[in-house]
């Protein structure tokens, strides 16, 4: 647990997070129409990208498990899903905090908000299934559910897109005319979050594998 590698990684992640915070709060210029509150963007968007990447890793790991039945693949699946839900929660909470002063409302059934919410619900149900399923089939059932969760994403996006056409346009995206200094802040924060998420995943992955080791030892003892 206290290996020098881990300490080095933690130091690097902390430095990156601190630098990202500095970039977001000090270096990036103030947005003209929204003012300083737009700086939430530098945490909100990189969190979203990180969460989506983690969910994608979960899908790959699940398929890998379904093909190869490898315990490592399942450990990666559970780690990425859990950390993904953490980052997705950040997105869902910072989103309304940003929307309130800018749009004057906490929530709207906009396609991005709602898709993210549904994605979050799917992965929470995935974690619930893992928690509640008994016996050795947990990884398999979870992997199957992950495939369903991925298959439904395009339908979620399409259906919500046509559901409410009068939604306020997302402030970012479409135009893509972001100031280069703002881009720096976004990308630095994304790098920091990716490193942080990687660290969390690694810790969770190790935890899962060690827990399995213990369970296997106990099962063996019970047999003998």
């Amino acid at each position: 647990m206290k290996s020098p590698v881990l300490i080095a990684v933690v130091v690097v992640v902390l430095a990156l997070l601190a630098f990202g915070l500095y970039q977001a709060l000090v270096v990036a210029p103030t947005e003209q129409t929204m003012g300083d509150v737009q700086r939430i963007f530098y945490y909100h968007v990189p969190s979203a990208w990180t969460a989506f990447l983690l969910f994608f890793i979960n899908l790959i790991a699940s398929i890998w498990y379904l093909i190869g039945r490898s315990g490592d693949a399942d450990a990666l699946a559970v780690a990425s899903a859990e950390v993904g839900v953490v980052f997705c929660t950040v997105v869902l909470i910072t989103g309304p905090i940003w929307a309130r002063p800018v749009w004057g409302i906490w929530w709207t059934w906009d396609v991005r908000l709602t898709s993210t919410l549904v994605l979050w619900l799917i992965y929470v149900s995935y974690l619930m299934l893992r928690r509640f399923s008994t016996g050795g089939q947990t990884p398999l059932l979870a992997a199957v559910l992950a495939v369903f969760g991925f298959a439904v994403v395009p339908f979620v996006y399409l259906s919500i897109r046509f559901f409410r056409t009068q939604h306020p346009q997302p402030v970012i995206g479409g135009g893509g005319s972001l100031d280069p200094a703002m881009w720096h802040a976004v990308l630095w924060n994304w790098l920091a979050f990716l490193a942080f998420a990687g660290l969390l995943c690694w810790l969770r992955y190790n935890l899962e594998r060690k827990q399995r080791g213990i369970e296997e030892t106990l099962a063996l003892e019970a047999l003998i």
Binding site: M34, V86, I93, T94, I97, L207
Partner: peptide, 23 residues
């Protein structure tokens, strides 16, 4: 809007910290 900005950053930090604590 400034309290909203700080709220967002603090919430992010808190969520990460809570997850680290559970780990």
């Amino acid at each position: 809007p400034i309290p909203f900005l700080y709220a967002a950053y603090i919430v992010t930090g808190v969520i990460h910290a809570v997850y680290l604590l559970t780990l």
